[in-house]
């Protein structure tokens, strides 16, 4: 049921964007990851959360 899936993802990112404690550079990375085909892997998520504040320069 795509609409439900989309609704959850939309709400998820809304919550993250409203959260000042959450680094927004990570939000963009998460969006790209969740939009990609295939299953989301824990290691990919770990790598995103471990990125420095504001993301990497290179």
């Amino acid at each position: 049921m795509a609409t439900l899936q989309e609704a959850v993802i939309k709400k998820f990112f809304e919550t993250l964007r409203d959260d000042e404690a959450f680094d927004q550079s990570k939000t963009a990375k998460l969006e790209a990851l969740l939009q990609a085909d295939g299953k989301v892997k824990a290691d990919d998520l770990t790598a995103i959360f471990a990125l420095p504040e504001g993301g990497e320069v290179l």
Partner: peptide, 28 residues
């Protein structure tokens, strides 16, 4: 500090996902 921040980010994201899922599934 970095690992703690990463942990906090992971926790915030997990909680946000659970809350979004719970709210949408509750409606469903």
């Amino acid at each position: 500090k970095g690992t703690q921040k990463a942990h906090d980010a992971g926790k915030i994201a997990y909680d946000a996902w659970c809350a979004a899922m719970e709210s949408e599934l509750d409606a469903l």
